[in-house]
Computed example of a mutant assay.
Amino acid sequence: ILFITMLIALPLGIGGGIYMAEYAKPGKITDIIRSCIEVLASLPSIVIGMFGLLMFVNLTGWGYTILGGALALTVFNLPVIVRVSEDAIRAVPRDLKEASLALGITKWHTIKTVLLPSAFPSILTGAILAAGRVFGEAAALLFTAGLSTPRLDYANWNPFSAQSPLNIFRPAETLAVHIWSVNTQGLIPDVEEVSNGSAAVLVLSVLVFNLLARWIGSMIHKKVTASK
């Protein structure tokens, strides 16, 4: 769910940030778009879950699916990534942009080779924060991805099979949803131990993801900016 969400949200979010920072002309329309982004970014996750239930579960006829949960979380995180990307691009020193344009480089090439590499650390921070919201989200996924995972055959790599772990049109229970489910509906005697263990796994997963993302982001930033 995290992978699909970021695969959709990052290109759209960064593209929206570039448009708002470099191409959108000041005026009422731009102000309305920015206000809509602010409103979407502040919506409670339960509202996004109800919207996802209507759009990606009932209207499409998919039922509870990994793809439906990922699309709902994309709606949830997209405004955040747009706003972070816009602020990161605007924070790049204007001298860098003007120097690039003075050399005769086109605006898009300047954005691609000068502004985005310079803004990359801030955009990466925004992406990690958005990913953290995906890790800990439960309310939106209750209505879109479901409360259970079918019995899976991990030797089955056919993405169209109902028992395949690669099938994105099957329901799935995330760790955050599992913790909520165990604490509210668990009938086993060791509910507290299972819940605490699941929470520990979730915290460690977030920590490992953040460290890996920072390390990979640092390598990419050094490569695109030729810095040591």
Rank of each mutant, 00 (worst) to 15 (best):
L12R: 12
I105L: 07
A91R: 07
V80K: 04
S100W: 02
P79G: 10
A72M: 11
F76G: 00
F51S: 11
C36A: 15
I66N: 04
Y64W: 11
L59F: 04
S100V: 05
V80Q: 13
I32Y: 11
F56M: 03
G49V: 00
I46W: 13
N58T: 13
V84P: 04
M55V: 15
M55D: 02
A88W: 02
M6N: 14
Y19I: 10
I33N: 08
F56Y: 10
I18L: 04
L10A: 15
E86D: 00
V57L: 08
L53H: 13
L101Y: 14
F56K: 02
G17Q: 05
L7F: 15
A70P: 07
T106H: 13
L54R: 07
L10E: 12
I89P: 03
L7H: 13
G63E: 09
Y19M: 02
W108L: 13
L12V: 13
K112C: 11
M6A: 09
S100H: 07
T65C: 08
V39A: 07
V82Y: 00
I89K: 05
I111W: 01
L96W: 08
L103G: 07
I33W: 03
A91V: 02
C36F: 15
R90I: 05
L101R: 14
V75Q: 05
K28F: 10
E38K: 06
K112P: 03
G17S: 10
K97N: 09
A88C: 04
A70S: 15
L40S: 05
G49L: 01
L43P: 00
A41P: 10
N58F: 13
Y64P: 10
I81W: 03
I46D: 09
G27Q: 07
P93S: 12
E98I: 11
G61K: 03
A99Q: 11
G13E: 09
E22A: 00
L96A: 08
I37M: 15
L54W: 01
L12Q: 08
L103T: 13
V84Q: 01
H109G: 01
R83K: 12
L40M: 11
V75T: 07
I37T: 11
M6H: 09
K107Y: 08
E22M: 01
L7Q: 14
P93D: 09
V47R: 08
A21R: 03
V57Q: 08
L103E: 14
G61L: 03
G63V: 03
V82L: 02
L78Q: 12
I66T: 00
L40P: 07
Y19W: 12
L103D: 10
I48V: 14
W108A: 06
L53T: 06
P11V: 09
C36K: 02
I81S: 06
W108H: 12
P93T: 07
K97M: 11
L54G: 10
F51C: 14
V92T: 06
A21S: 15
P11D: 10
L59I: 00
E86G: 04
I48S: 00
I14E: 10
V82I: 15
I32T: 13
S35Y: 10
P79L: 04
M50G: 12
S42F: 02
Y64C: 05
